[in-house]
Measured scan of single mutants.
Amino acid sequence: EPLWIRPDAPSRCTWQLGRPASESPHHHTAPAKSPKILPDILKKIGDTPMVRINKIGKKFGLKCELLAKCEFFNAGGSVKDRISLRMIEDAERDGTLKPGDTIIEPTSGNTGIGLALAAAVRGYRCIIVMPEKMSSEKVDVLRALGAEIVRTPTNARFDSPESHVGVAWRLKNEIPNSHILDQYRNASNPLAHYDTTADEILQQCDGKLDMLVASVGTGGTITGIARKLKEKCPGCRIIGVDPEGSILAEPEELNQTEQTTYEVEGIGYDFIPTVLDRTVVDKWFKSNDEEAFTFARMLIAQEGLLCGGSAGSTVAVAVKAAQELQEGQRCVVILPDSVRNYMTKFLSDRWMLQKGFLKEEDLTEKKPWWWHLRVQELGLSAPLTVLPTITCGHTIEILREKGFDQAPVVDEAGVILGMVTLGNMLSSLLAGKVQPSDQVGKVIYKQFKQIRLTDTLGRLSHILEMDHFALVVHEQIQYHSTGKSSQRQMVFGVVTAIDLLNFVAAQERDQK
């Protein structure tokens, strides 16, 4: 057995438009009618409502009807409940999964919650491996369901041993009777949507819809739904939504950006999952974080739909894509998950301010006199920076000697690579993860907040409520011999709460 199987392995699926269902090699399930009293909570997966979006479509000038398939009504709160249950049931049916076995899954959280929910009911041990950027709410729900959680670096490539995929496979090879159901490759993922989600949409719309818009992560949702719609409703256009920084969209030119990270969760990847059939997507749109969270908040405030950030991405694209539809036509959007997962993220004004998705003037509360002053007023001194090749031991000596707790790590040209902190280095040394002679590049981390000289002290204040420091950066445009230009970030300084307090105190003292 291989040590790991690539999540982007070539698909062996034989589905073709027009091929009889009787030739399918898979076990198919028909939607079942729910009894009045459910035998367990797993029976509350599927049969989610279709809700008309009344205000947002009109606000953006849509002539067509805009409908939302509300997947956050599933038992675990997301569309991923469907595939989690289906993968477990299919693994039980073919004898792969037996009582007492362990389920391991690399996930952005929602599939993990679905699997942990099913594992709690069915009696399996469950280990979820997820990147650090995923919300604390997801972690809390997983723990409450009895799952064990392993976190991995957000910026690790999918084929790196440190990625959530790599760590999951390492655990599988170490733990007896453990299984990775593997949402990236498992046919049960798109089949769950082909058999149930798509049929529900067709039934709820009486077979009449002209466009379907869905955000894409593993691709199982859009693949399964689109294949069924292509068979039953061939005139329906399928629109895929991919965040900026991901590479799922086609044509490839759409993916060209210097951005590699994004805040919206559960969609987009740096590889093409095996289950994603991009041939059934008629057109791709890219979405960005700001519009995703703005539209998610709009869905909550104006439509009462308590959905997550990827739902915002989907609707932001839908109001663009559906401009081509006329009166009497219908566009369906998939709202994948609930706001429950993001209470401390985009639902929080403070978080939105820190990330730059909300401006101070958007909030009406009274601010102190210094709130709208610029960061450049602080008069920061030149920063202490270190090269990635310097040793951890030497870096600790320098920081202690100069009285700093942290320093930016830059390359020879001064471009920011990340940050090192005294606390992080000492804990890594004590844990045996690094040696004093190791290069400081081994303990770089990139989960820090950046701020510009033109940003306000109010925004800085919000950042420092949650973080010990902020890195002050400025952009530099560099022209190359080819005539092309590129933008790079340079370090201007490091600012802490002490710097802000000293500035405010000094100004008030001078005024007296």
Rank of each mutant, 00 (worst) to 15 (best):
S338C: 03
V491L: 15
E291W: 09
Q507T: 13
G309Y: 00
G308W: 00
D282S: 15
L429Q: 08
I416F: 07
D349W: 00
K320R: 06
G432E: 10
S486A: 05
L460Y: 08
P368E: 10
G245N: 07
D438S: 13
F503S: 06
I416L: 15
Q435P: 11
A407E: 11
K345A: 04
G483S: 15
L248R: 04
L335F: 08
A413D: 01
F503N: 08
W370C: 05
E465I: 02
M298R: 11
F357W: 07
V494W: 01
Y342R: 01
D455A: 14
L299A: 05
D282G: 12
I239H: 03
Q447D: 14
E265V: 00
L306W: 01
F492M: 14
A292R: 03
L501D: 04
D242Y: 00
Q476E: 13
Y479G: 12
W371L: 11
V495I: 15
L501M: 12
V494E: 05
A505L: 02
L353P: 02
E290M: 14
Q376G: 10
G379N: 10
V473P: 07
I390G: 15
D349H: 08
G308N: 02
E327T: 12
L460C: 08
R374F: 12
W370R: 05
L457C: 06
G403E: 08
A431Y: 08
V332R: 00
M490G: 14
S427R: 10
E252V: 13
K286M: 02
T364E: 12
L276H: 01
R374H: 13
V410P: 02
V280G: 15
F404L: 15
M343W: 00
D242Q: 03
R350A: 14
Q435C: 14
F346C: 02
E291T: 09
Y479M: 13
Q376L: 12
H394Q: 11
L325F: 11
K359I: 14
A506Q: 10
L363Q: 07
E253H: 03
T364F: 11
A311D: 10
A322Q: 01
S461G: 14
D349A: 07
S427F: 10
S437E: 15
H372D: 13
V472Q: 14
G493E: 10
R278M: 05
L430Y: 13
Q329E: 11
C307V: 03
L464E: 07
